[in-house]
Design a protein around this nucleic acid. Structure first.
Length: 414
RNA sequence: CGGGGUGUUGUGUAACGGUAGCACGAACGCUUUGGGAGCGUUUAGUCAGAGUUCGAAUCUCUGCACCCCGACCA
């Protein structure tokens, strides 16, 4: 991508309104644009990151046996009345249509996936299975905050699993716990993320939150100093001691919930009469699990833990581009020609390059923008490097620069 | 939803109730080109409505928007 054509704009001044670091950096670097409180557009840079996150999650879901589907955002009121959530779920967006028709905008999809599964599940032979989607959710949050960390409209991966027994659900739940850790590891926030015991709400004793430590987090978690189990505030109030090892020595930390998994059990199968015929001929309710990750929140969370004074430092796995190619001295024909050649050669090797071909920007401005945007490798072509028959390469998270031959670039980057 | 705060060009800010100014950005010209370079010219703004006043960005009221704290949170 030619930077001179990229649909974005960086801003030098810190935003007066963005308090969270990720919010400020993502806005200033031109990844996102705020339309209103809690609602954002993703510009090309941001959308690329989002897609990369999406692909990591999708790959892991498919490996965990999930089949990708797409369910409607617009949903009938009746299904929500049936589960009692039409009136009890404060964050539910309700919209009206022609006549007296009322609809829900999906904040989550149990009310759609349960009746859907009913059309497919008849026998124990139809179980288990899991389906997932990556889709826009709407939640009328009473208070949005911290940029992408809490929004009213957001892309979410939600998976629903269906089982013949509690035991089978438990097994899959444990499996997904590991898969989730793998996802966060691939996203570059694995080491900061804790599996945290949380209240299961109305349908099971516990659920598990994946909490990433950050001062920007809105949640407080308590990490057991003895066994490293984490519990959230609700659990701490009920159990002064660690539920795993009975220690009462906790460390209090701020964290953001990057994922949440639930055992729905029969909470939704009962109202939707979701049953199957077991081997012995009896009808039994289906056990359900639910596994969510907010993609935008994940993106914001990554930035909260990967930045320095100059800007974002993207993990290679989700960076918008692999290489930021910068030419300095655009009026020099040799510089321009060399940079263009590198741009083309790298792309032939399927390496994604953002090429700063802007002729009216000084070196300092290009470097400042590159640091702010945070692409993992910065490659510089200038008269200076060409005098040594080489180009310069620098990693965003390192201080040192290296002079290398242009031919070596592919090998270094791959 | 309760509480607090703030609304001034695209961004960041200044202006006692008395000429809306500065910096960045953008545009044009010239000079520059390894860490946001220089000179000159230009561009664009008081959230909306009502009120008080000779006069309102400034005071009052209403509305709207955004931010923060709390509560809430599949």
């Amino acid at each position: 991508m030619l930077q001179s054509k990229l649909f974005y704009k960086t801003t030098r001044e810190k935003s007066a309104e963005a308090e969270a670091i990720s919010h400020d950096l993502l806005a200033r670097a031109g990844f996102v644009d705020q339309l209103m409180a809690g609602v954002y557009s993703f510009l090309p840079l941001g959308f690329r990151v989002l897609k990369n996150i999406e692909n990591i999650i999708r790959k892991n879901m498919v490996e965990a046996g999930g089949q990708e589907i797409l369910m409607p955002v617009l949903q009938p009121k009746e299904n929500w009345v049936k589960t009692g959530r039409w009136n009890n779920l404060e964050i539910l967006f309700k919209v009206s249509g022609s006549g007296d028709k009322e609809y829900a905008l999906g904040p989550t999809h149990e009310e759609v996936v349960s009746p859907l599964a009913k059309k497919i599940i008849f026998s124990y032979r139809d179980l288990p299975f899991s389906v997932f989607q990556i889709q826009t959710k709407f939640r009328d949050e009473l208070r949005v905050k911290s940029g992408l960390l809490r929004t009213r409209e957001f892309l979410m991966k939600d998976m629903y699993s269906f089982h013949e027994s509690q035991a089978d659900l438990d097994k899959y739940y444990d499996k997904l716990t590991k898969v989730y850790f793998n996802i966060f590891k691939e996203l570059g926030i694995g080491k900061d993320t804790y599996l945290t015991l949380a209240s299961g709400g109305t349908f099971s004793k516990y659920s598990h939150e994946f909490q990433m430590l950050t001062p920007a987090g809105e949640d407080t978690i308590y990490i057991c100093n003895k066994c490293k189990t984490a519990i959230n505030k609700e659990i701490k109030e009920e159990n002064p001691a660690c539920p795993e090892c009975s220690s009462d020595n906790f460390e209090e930390k701020k964290a953001v919930e990057v994922g949440n998994i639930f055992k729905l059990n029969t909470k939704f199968s009962l109202p939707f009469d979701l049953k199957f015929k077991d081997r012995d001929g009896t009808e039994k309710p289906v056990f359900m699990g639910c596994f969510g990750i907010g993609l935008g929140r994940a993106m914001g969370s990554v930035v909260e833990t990967n930045y320095d004074d100059n800007g974002i430092i993207w993990p290679k796995s989700i960076a918008p581009f692999a290489v930021h190619l910068i030419e300095i001295g655009s009026n020099d024909k040799k510089v321009k020609a060399t940079a263009l050649k590198i741009y083309q050669d790298l792309q032939k090797e399927n390496i994604e390059v953002l090429y700063d071909d802007r002729v009216d920007k000084t070196a300092g401005e290009k470097f400042a923008d590159a640091d702010l945007i945070g692409i993992p490798y910065r490659v510089v072509v200038s008269e200076k490097t060409l005098a040594k028959n080489s180009v310069e390469i620098k990693e965003r998270d390192k201080k040192s620069v290296k002079l290398v031959k242009a031919k070596q670039l592919v090998k270094i980057i791959k």
